[in-house]
Design a protein around this nucleic acid. Structure first.
Lengths: 193, 193
DNA sequence: CGTTTTGTTGATTGACCAGTCAATTAAAAA
DNA sequence: TTTTTAATTGACTGGTCAATCAACAAAACG
């Protein structure tokens, strides 16, 4: 039943199904058929809208990335001082939709995709650069060597991500991850409160 | 020219070729044919010795893991005090064969494999547990909350790994990675020297 | 020297899958 | 009402690949 305006909603469904299937299966070895089925459409339609499997993967990456960006902006807008901004960034990394098991699993797989797909690599680079840049900015008034601390914190966040991507038992524990990064940051900026 | 005793040497070649090809291609999407060719044998022989592709992957993981273990033992044997042991573990993580670009890339992909292959997950768990346990042991005389610091350091190490797995330009910079982890540890144990 | 054991491969099979295409439906526009 | 246009799919194709197998070669053994 072809109602006009289906495009946007079908593309959304397909992108979500892509993240879901990659997360569920835990690998990029998902077929267009599986994704399409999960989205409730035929595989031909997925090709119709996205052109190729790679393009669909790219779109899924962009979706995760922009969700992360939105979360970050949301958290940051509520922060008042540098220390608050720092916490906001950390919370954004592990909060909202960003730390759901299938999203984390999909994320890990996109790291792998980035090794073959130059476009995926570019997307990932944007995320990494933005993360470090946000952290550096917030850290500048709080310590000397803000960049160095920011880079360490970013690596720590990534490490916690993949650790949680592995332990599939139960939902990822965002609270503990946040606490770990917070503890490091507090240590690094010499905050004794 | 079938000389007896070929088995071990062919299996070694195949395992190395597996790591090499996964690293070169940057994904688990390597065919038995490619691996076999890189090892200078037919794909049938690879199946003959390893049974299945999964088993070959597993063997490659074990090879990396045991290389890491050997490196760790080597470094640890030279360490005299707890602080030295700490440094030894860190150096082992980024030293020797363990930080070659293709090994790091293969490693990242084994993380993904672990999400589908229970046996791979078990292997990875062993590595992770051993890393944390080694760190905790060395940290015990140096700080209160050794386990917490160990976990953070382990996550940091993993994070640096995947970061380096991404930036394919040039060889991974082990020195800087070691310095980063060392800086955190020094900070965490309150060593002011 | 014959036989067994070990090493080795080319050819084949069976399954799977990305991507294409022609055909169908129904809404929207003319 | 007729025509265009968007949405949608089943069927098909060309190619790839893991795994199997039967056969062959050369060393080792008796």
């Amino acid at each position: 039943m072809p109602r006009v305006g289906m495009m946007a909603q079908r593309m959304d469904a397909l992108v979500n199904a892509t993240i879901g299937e990659i997360g569920r299966k835990g690998s990029l070895d998902v077929t267009m058929g599986q994704i399409a089925k999960a989205a409730g459409v035929s595989s031909a339609l997925a090709h119709h809208y996205f052109g190729s499997k790679d393009d669909l993967f790219l779109a899924a990456m962009r979706a995760i990335l922009s969700e992360f960006g939105a979360e970050a902006r949301r958290e940051l807008s509520a922060a008042r001082d540098p220390r608050g901004r720092l916490g906001a960034i950390v919370r954004a990394s592990f909060g909202g939709q960003n730390f759901l098991p299938e999203v984390v699993a999909a994320w890990l797989n996109f790291y792998v995709l980035a090794r073959t797909q130059p476009k995926a690599a570019r997307l990932l680079n944007i995320y990494q650069r933005r993360l470090v840049s946000n952290l550096t900015h917030a850290l500048r008034p709080l310590c000397d060597r803000p960049q160095s601390v920011a880079r360490t914190a970013a690596a720590l966040i990534d490490g916690l991500y993949i650790r949680h991507a592995l332990t599939e038992a139960g939902p990822p524990d965002a609270t503990q991850a946040i606490a770990t990064v917070e503890a490091y940051l507090t240590l690094a900026i010499g905050d004794a409160r």
